Computed example of a mutant assay.
Amino acid sequence: MKTNLHFIVNPIAGKGRNELSTDMLEAFFPNSEYAVSIKKTEFVLHAKALAKASIEEGAQIIVACGGDGTINEVASCLVNTSVVLGILPMGSGNGLASNLRIPKNLKKALNIIKNQKVMTIDTGTVNNEPFFSNTGVGFDAHVISDFEENTTRQLFSYVQSTWRTLKKYNYKNVVELKYNGTTELISPFLLFVSNSNEMGYKMSLTPQASLQDGLLDVVIVPKLSRFKLVLFTMLFLFKKHHWLKEVRFQQLTALEIKSLDNTILKVQCDGGSVTQQYSKLLKYFLKA
């Protein structure tokens, strides 16, 4: 029986020149052994709709071809199913693919799928919506929002977004954190919840995080002075942000973040801005 293999391609991810030719795929997945289908996304959340359709069509392997956002859309449909997720990293940062050691070289990545090197990873949720790499409230969410307005999605664009956000970022809201039986109030510069040890572009706030340890790695950074804001950003770019004494780390299975001043929390999830999906109360959980 042929293996039913579907590729869901985001043609505008990364540099926006993503194509998969039928001839190339047939070289790896011959018609005698595989039934291959290629689908292209046309709008936000289209990858999720295409993945659901592929499941109904009996796909055994669904390959997300894009960045972390595309992977999130596809993978969210595969949680608790027998369908295997494949990844072809075609995005800008490719944080999850990098953590999983999936190369950007297309032929090498296709070989991994062909050899079916399968592993099981933890899944995080925020307000019951899955995430696989990371999610955050505060500075990183504002950086992602700025980054999404760029016409180019490269490392330099990300650095530009970081500095632009740093210059205009203003936070006054107070949130209540609940975790491990503890409640605390904080005016956060950053609340970062990660399942992965990489955000993309080889940058990381949680270098010790693991996709298979059954824990979420949480970075808590309170309101900082202007000088320390700049210092934190510089240290982060060099992976030394832990040097700043205000930066705290927790490993948790559950976290609740509640806005106490009627502010809708700005959130990023797997590298995409998702402010409109959330409210004044965020509940994070991990499923190992």
Rank of each mutant, 00 (worst) to 15 (best):
V230Q: 11
I113C: 08
K172D: 13
L45D: 15
T182N: 14
L20H: 09
L85T: 06
L166R: 03
I112G: 01
F147W: 05
H241R: 06
K178Y: 05
T162W: 00
I220K: 11
L237C: 06
L255G: 03
P222T: 05
Q208Y: 08
L265C: 10
T233I: 11
F147T: 04
N18E: 04
G93V: 07
K2V: 09
N99R: 11
P188I: 03
I8Y: 12
T275W: 06
G67Q: 12
K239C: 05
L211G: 09
K52P: 00
V137P: 07
K104S: 14
K258H: 07
L25E: 12
T70W: 01
P130V: 00
L177C: 10
N170A: 06
D217F: 05
N99T: 15
D23E: 15
W243N: 02
V174N: 11
I144Q: 00
A288E: 14
V267S: 04
W243Q: 07
P222S: 10
S187R: 14
V9E: 03
S187G: 07
I102L: 05
N111L: 04
G86I: 08
M119H: 00
L110T: 01
L265G: 09
S145W: 03
G272K: 10
M199A: 08
V83S: 08
L260F: 01
H6M: 05
E198L: 13
K168W: 01
A141L: 02
V44W: 03
R17W: 00
F43G: 12
R248D: 03
R101P: 00
G16W: 01
G16E: 10
N195M: 10
H6L: 11
L237K: 13
F132E: 05
F132K: 08
V175P: 03
D23H: 13
S82F: 11
G95H: 06
T206P: 12
N134M: 12
A27S: 15
S210M: 14
M203P: 00
F28A: 09
L205N: 09
Q208E: 14
V267W: 03
Q116S: 08
C65Y: 07
M234V: 15
A13R: 04
V267R: 02
Q268M: 12
K172M: 04
V126N: 06
K108P: 11
K266S: 15
D270P: 06
L50R: 02
P130A: 07
T263E: 14
V79A: 10
T135F: 04
P222W: 04
F139D: 12
A35V: 01
V159G: 02
E57F: 04
T22W: 10
N18P: 02
A141N: 08
G14F: 05
A254E: 15
L106Y: 00
L211M: 08
F139C: 13
T123M: 04
L281F: 10
K107V: 09
S82V: 09
L106I: 06
L235M: 06
F28Q: 12
G200V: 11
R101T: 13
I61S: 01
Y179Q: 04
S82R: 13
G86L: 02
K168Y: 06
D146K: 10
K258V: 10
K167I: 02
L88R: 05
N128R: 11
P130M: 00
I186Y: 08
T183Y: 01
Q212A: 07
K40G: 00
